[in-house]
Design a protein around this nucleic acid. Structure first.
Lengths: 222, 222
DNA sequence: GCATTTTTTAATGCATACGCAATGAAATGC
DNA sequence: GCATTTCATTGCGTATGCATTAAAAAATGC
């Protein structure tokens, strides 16, 4: 049986996050605390606590008397976020390569890469995105810095909502996995500099692709 | 007139932060919500909100029924934090150098460097630390990424409390300013790679010095 | 004595109530 | 009509009370 006892403020946190990612609470929309409380069928107190946490994670903004606003993402925001991800993930890749991980340790990474290949063959973008998430997440875990894990996870969350839009605008990421394999091998073979530089290029490329895409489609906010 | 109306939860945030930095709430100590509420002369509600925010910033931890625990810093934590600072500040330095700032734009940076020199002459460590903070803060501002600003500020806060201890254990930072000047000049002269690499070395050196110091003094927690 | 159960205690999570202040509407003056 | 003031509304910040339940203390059995 799945744990049924979960505090209301925890539930509020989970459900609000889910509703933000799913778009049920859309970017730029405003919501009164009491409205959210009604929606989640609890009092304002736990909702406020959840909202406060989500605000500190950059997903929304509390504006007294105007309501809670789900933050939209501009191309500038994308640039900022990707720059943070680039730096911290590249560092993680370097550290992971220094750590001398066994092939066993790297199995999740390998699995994610295989899954991406499979997803591309089937042209299943959602499955690809899921595997890509797992790759980046595991890479950071292997880097062994829990703060980097937390920050990267936060930044990834900030772009997560927008991805449902961008994912289907972009070309099939057929080339992307070549980079992943190089990073994987560099980590396995203990080549920190290669792991870092390859991953850095990979992320910089992704950033450019994404921002160009937004520009091309004249999307000023997501 | 300074703004006198400040919500209680804002006041709680400010005052709790101050008390953590000053050591009045010491690392590892536990405090009940009601105890903090009494201390700040307000009800538990705004205290809880402030505590929630501070938790998300990594300064403390809420442990139901055991109280709010001010988080101690281990040498491992220091390593993690300095690695994040190293990566993100170096990136900021690189970006600042790319941005083509005028000498005017860089005046705060120059001022901070001068102040550090003056502080060292007077052997005033508190003044030095203050100027050093300003240098690093301004560097990140010049980098132009608001998320990096926020993250760096958060990480700096996490080590701030510990610095009151380490500051007086370490040798006078007489050499440190040479690095700062190189970074400054690289930014002014538009040499991103030099700005980045110099600052990165600077931070790596600081990390090593600090961690060695803790080891030498057998300080497992701060 | 020591382990186990029962009872007591009290900190928290949350609902609720309410005053204040900000916002928009209505009224007033020009 | 337009600007300004007054008024009404209502969302938020905060205090308060209470049920829950984890932890401590006491009681019981061996």
């Amino acid at each position: 049986m799945t744990n049924k006892s979960l505090s209301n403020s925890q539930r509020a946190l989970n459900e609000l996050r889910a509703k933000i990612f799913s778009g049920e609470l859309s970017a730029g929309s405003d919501h009164l605390e009491s409205e959210l409380a009604d929606l989640l069928e609890m009092s304002r107190t736990p909702v406020r606590e959840a909202v406060l946490t989500l605000e500190s994670q950059g997903l929304l903004e509390m504006r007294p008397r105007k309501g809670v606003r789900i933050l939209p993402l501009s191309p500038d925001d994308m640039n900022e976020i990707y720059d943070v991800l680039t730096e911290l993930e590249s560092h993680a890749a370097e550290r992971a390569a220094e750590a001398g991980h066994s092939t066993e340790d790297l199995s999740r990474l390998a699995q994610a890469i295989d899954d991406m290949d499979a997803a591309i063959l089937k042209e299943d973008l959602d499955a690809w995105a899921d595997a890509d998430d797992r790759f980046h997440k595991e890479l950071v875990v292997l880097g062994g810095n829990s703060r980097i894990e937390a920050i990267v996870s936060m930044m990834s969350d900030q772009v997560r909502r927008a991805r449902s839009t961008t994912l289907f605008m972009r070309p099939l990421p057929t080339k992307s996995n070549a980079d992943h394999r190089v990073v994987y091998q560099a980590i396995r073979d203990g080549d920190p500099e290669l792991a870092r530089s390859t991953h850095k290029m990979h992320r910089q490329h992704a950033k450019k692709m994404l921002v160009d895409l937004l520009q091309k489609h004249r999307l000023r906010f997501l």
